[in-house]
Amino acid sequence: MKTVVSERDVTVVPAVRKKRKWTADHWLAAAFLTPSVVLIFIFVYGFIGWTGYVSLSNWNSLVPDLSFAGWKNYIYLFHDFRFQADLRNTVVFTVLFIGVVVVLGQFLAILLDQKLRGESIFRNIFFFPMALSFVVTGVIWQWLLNPSTGVNLFLKKFGLDSKWYTDTTILGGFHIGKIEGGVPVAMIAVVIAAVWQMTGFAVAMYLAGLRAIPEEVREAARMDGATEFQIYRKIIIPMLRPITVSVIIIMAHISLKIFDLIYAMTGPGANFVTDVPGVYMFETTFRGNYYANGAAIAMIMLLSVAIFIVPYLISSRKGES
């Protein structure tokens, strides 16, 4: 500690402070940190707390009514057809989206890692959609996949069905609660658009991961007579597991909170086949003035993301220490 403090300072800093081991540098650090810590506590955790409080209140009109309502809003939501559909859609979207991004991202990254010429061009091409906002992606894919425009006109020429974009069928439907569980056909369109946008990001992460694997490992495997395919299957891909965890965490927090892509692309959809909690929260809060219901949806979304994020944060903290 003393090494940091210059001699000149030692003479100035009183002995009392020395006892508490708080040097000027500590004070400075604390002074610089305090504002952001205070601001984060107020504007992040304070408002999370406030939202949680509102979600337990009766505030379901333009007039704020903060009287305690218990779990009423949550109970209402879990009995609501639309919210049940939202939960189904979120699970379906998250699983499909993450699954495809992980597999495709890994595959493309390995292809790019073959030291081919013009690699950086391909990398940029894959990465470029990331630069767009989800709203732009939504509008583009809406026109591409719309039954009366784009890809479907092409498909129609070959006598293929062009209605899948607005199809309300649920694949593998089984009755659960008020809704039909399964994979809504129309959701596939949204998954395609999201995958198009986010795969480049996964590619970049996997590529970084691949580059971090020392050449010696491959060499050693080759010496032991492993084929290239075996090297990837048995060595490279297992070594990419930490990257996969990071990709899953990052994609999960995007897909669980998705709003803009769906709002711009399909909207809630007929029979709410493409609705998600984010869209419901926006509409019920700002169109219907059901503030407490909207807050309850927000809390459920927060919890669903926390299920992914918190274990990740804990494990990465352990790794640090």
């Binding site: 809406q142 039954p147 009366s148 209605k163 974009y165 607005t166 007929a270």
Partner: peptide, 8 residues
């Protein structure tokens, strides 16, 4: 009697 792609 409505158009099939009404929801888009």
């Amino acid at each position: 009697y409505i158009n099939e792609d009404h929801s888009s």
